[in-house]
Design a protein around this nucleic acid. Structure first.
Length: 574
RNA sequence: CGGGGCGUAGCGCAGCCUGGUUAGCGCACCUGCCUUGGGAGCAGGGGGUCGGAGGUUCAAAUCCUCUCGCCCCGACCA
């Protein structure tokens, strides 16, 4: 392409509403523009990157035996009612009515549609396994879109769905996708890790997230320093501590203490001169409309994802003051397990606590020397707390490392969650009707592109890996009014295009500095500078964006160098 | 949904507190000259419902009320 003919509005100013590097650079490089909150247009340069990512995804999905389909964005409510998610999904699901007053939604994901499709056309084990995927616009009405296209409402996602005859088959499908994903993100030039993850809204038994390592990532991750355990902190397990023998003779007598206006753990510790390890934190949650008291040691935090998963509930939120009053006969800040009017579940951190401080369920009072068994009963213990730096690996007990990441892909073992709800069955060899076993697999296309920028940039702009670069080469004649320079640049331009190289000829009547800065900003991997000094010797310069290395070559040598270099880079990523 | 901030030219901002010529600056844009290896210089020029509505006033970008939008923090969430 000739730069002079391109729609490529680059900018020098840093957009004031962009917080993270990828967002700023995508705006400045003329890749995207915001239409409204969480909704973006892709300009030609940005769209080329998207297409590159999509192509890599297609190639690897096809290689893994998946087949591409294209499902509707608008979906009828009935399907979602069948799966139960019409109620569960919450406000992120954009619902509306058509002119016949039928309830519809914009698809945030496509389990329902694909399951409906497959149940109608797959009847026998002979038609299984199958894996279908699509690359399509999803709509999720995010509470707070942010970071440009990193978390937006309308976005392009590759979603794949596998259908198998049994768990064993589903396991194989899952492994194939896991491998395909690893290849995809490697080819996109990303440094990533797969981590165990919570299954959230999608459900199912087990999942891995593919995380691009970046400090600006929204997810916190934990890794074992010696074994290969890696997990999202919202999923990370904490080992159950050994239950110590209880010595009831060491129990001190219960003591109710007046603690006016003392509510938080810090206030309790200061007032009673104890440590957070001595205090029981009692949190009241509203779980599918009934209250549940959750106990955790005072220095620990509840992990709501784990709690949600343990309780198997649709909705979970911290209780309002009204509910707290109902359950504890007191305002917020004085809840405790003794005589509380709700179900109690406790985190493992609570197992070995003795003579602890608890709320009295009475305004302005706490109780000292509370003991499980003697003073109250707890029958449910579970791993409910957030992992922290001082914890050790739940698998091998080695020290842990923490880091942040961007979730670019997520693979799920769904089991029969959707096939049961929506009666997706097949007949096995014995003529018996069985539920298909499903998996689903997503990749955020735009997010993958943005994540690449988070990992590859410098003060001057983006540094694309060749595999997803919008163009591979930029030719920069330093002065287009110099006939010799322009002629040489044109010759290179034609020659490289003939060899299948994607190239921009910067034929603008701009000063060299402007062109260099734009080339760096939009991150083209190679730049050929055609200038008078070198051309006098019949040479041009080829500069490698990522290393800054410069090769001085004749025109023919430059062509060959570039073709070879591009091939080598593509091979290295693949 | 709670807390905070911001809406003035394509972008980045000043002016508002303390109302008063024709609403400014930088970048970008157009014309001409000049210049051409890391965002040049000079001269001239175009572009504004000051987010919107209502109100106060002789007079509103400025004060008041309502409203819409955007951003950040939290809550929430693949």
């Amino acid at each position: 392409m000739r730069y002079s003919e391109m729609f490529l509005p680059t900018g020098r100013e840093i957009p004031s509403d962009a917080e993270i590097v990828s967002h700023r650079l995508m705006i400045r490089a003329g890749m995207i523009r915001k239409l409204t909150s969480g909704i973006y247009s892709y300009l030609p340069l940005g769209f080329r990157v998207i297409k590159k990512v999509e192509q890599i995804v297609r190639e690897e999905m096809n290689r893994a035996g998946a087949q591409e389909v294209f499902l509707p964005a608008v979906q009828p409510a009935e399907l979602w009612q069948e799966s139960g998610r019409w109620q569960q999904y919450g406000k992120e699901l954009l619902r509306f009515r058509d002119r016949q007053d039928r309830e519809c939604c914009l698809g945030p994901t496509h389990e329902e549609v694909i399951t409906d499709l497959v149940r109608n056309d797959v009847k026998t084990y002979r038609q299984l396994p199958r894996n279908l995927y699509q690359i399509q616009t999803k709509f999720r009405d995010e509470v707070r879109p942010r970071f440009g296209i990193m978390r937006c409402k309308e976005f392009s996602m590759k979603d794949a769905y596998s259908f198998d005859v049994d768990e064993k088959g589903a396991e194989i499908s899952y492994e194939k996708m896991f491998e395909a994903y690893s290849r995809i993100f490697s080819r996109c030039g990303l440094k990533f890790r797969a981590v165990e993850a919570d299954t959230g809204n999608i459900g199912g038994s087990f999942s891995h997230e593919f995380m691009v390592m970046a400090d600006t990532g929204e997810d916190a991750l934990v890794f074992c320093s010696s074994c290969d355990y890696a997990a999202n902190v919202e999923k990370a397990e904490v080992a159950r501590p050994e239950k110590k023998a209880v010595d009831e003779s060491a129990f001190s007598p219960l003591e109710e203490i007046h603690t006016p206006d003392v509510r938080t753990i810090e206030e309790v510790c200061a007032f009673l001169d104890v440590t957070p390890q001595d205090v029981v934190k009692t949190l009241i949650f509203l779980v599918d409309d009934s209250p549940v008291a959750v106990l955790v040691r005072g220095d620990e935090e509840i992990n709501e994802a784990k709690l949600r998963s343990y309780l198997g509930c649709d909705s979970l939120e911290l209780a309002t003051d009204d509910i707290i009053y109902e359950v504890t006969d007191s305002p917020r800040g004085f809840a405790g397990p003794i005589n509380i009017k709700s179900r109690i579940v406790a985190d493992y951190s609570f197992v070995n606590m003795t003579n602890c401080v608890v709320g009295a369920n009475k305004e302005d009072y706490h109780i000292k020397n509370a003991n499980i068994g003697r003073d109250f009963k707890v029958t449910e213990f579970a791993d409910l707390r957030l992992i922290k730096e001082t914890d050790s690996c739940p698998r091998c007990e080695s020290p842990l490392r923490f880091a942040r990441g961007i979730e670019v892909g997520h693979v799920f073992k769904l089991g029969t969650k959707y096939s049961k709800a929506m009666k997706a069955t097949y007949l096995d060899k014995d003529g018996k009707e069985k539920y298909m076993v499903m998996g689903c697999y997503g990749i955020g296309i735009g997010r993958t592109a943005a994540a690449s920028i988070e990992q590859n940039y410098d003060d001057n702009g983006i540094i694309w890996p060749v595999s997803i670069a919008p163009f591979q080469v930029m030719i920069t004649p330093v002065n287009i009014k110099d006939e010799a320079l322009l002629t040489t640049a044109e010759k290179l331009y034609q020659g490289l295009m003939d060899k299948g190289i994607e190239v921009i000829l910067d034929d603008r009547d701009e000063r060299a500095g402007v062109k260099f800065n734009d080339a760096d900003l939009i991150g083209i991997p190679l730049r050929i500078t055609v200038g008078p000094k070198r051309l006098a010797e019949g040479k041009v310069e080829v500069k490698i964006r990522k290393s800054g290395e410069v090769e001085v070559l004749s025109v023919d040598e430059a062509e060959k160098f570039i073709v070879d270099w591009v091939q080598a880079e593509l091979k290295a990523d693949g």
